[in-house]
Amino acid sequence: MTTSTNYYSLVASLPYMPRWFDVDEVPISRIRLEQRLKMLGERDKSVVEQVQGFLHWDRQESERTDEDVQREYTRLMNSIANRLVRDIINHRMDIRTVTCALRRRRLSLEPPSAVGQYVSHIQKNWQHPDFRLAREHTWIPRVSKHLESNQPLDVERELLTATWNRWVKLADNFHFSFETILLYLARWEIVDRWTRLDAAPGRQRFDRLLAQTLESDGDVA
């Protein structure tokens, strides 16, 4: 492993990332992607590991309490300096928080206490249909509607679309840089997540999460 990364070689070695995540398979297998990432320099490698660790944590099925999420969020924010990585984490956490709030309100529970910039805003606007966040997050009304109609796959699609669009927009600003690689990984993760989903397991997961929430007295973030 070298100390610096040759971004031109690494970026050019990665297959084209489709403009939309709704495809049949990932553009590059996980094994091959890991092989390509061996071209990373030491410093970049550690940042990429942080991002991959977070994305892995983010996609795990949750039995976490608000305190667990807050602890993980604080740990990440204390250990990560890269602005784009912080942005990736903050964006995902915001989506988790808003989605969690929608689910809790539907179950007549209290607003979430973790995590990120919208916690107090949601508490203040708890009765508003979109928590007065629809201008920044246009997906909220659609997700709310899909939640009401028990459409877990549509909920997942909306949430992934919101994240995907943000990464695509950001990726257009970078060409042969570390940010290009981070955004490639973030989008790869979404494609991988989507290609592993189908309607039946999605519904089972939704039902399981709902049951967990009810059993744990609404302490799930």
């Binding site: 031109y8 070689s9 970026v11 050019a12 070695s13 297959p15």
Partner: peptide, 13 residues
């Protein structure tokens, strides 16, 4: 060098 590095990377794909 920049273009050559990109070409080398692209050869893998």
């Amino acid at each position: 060098a920049r273009a050559g590095q990109a070409a080398s990377g692209a050869l893998l794909d």
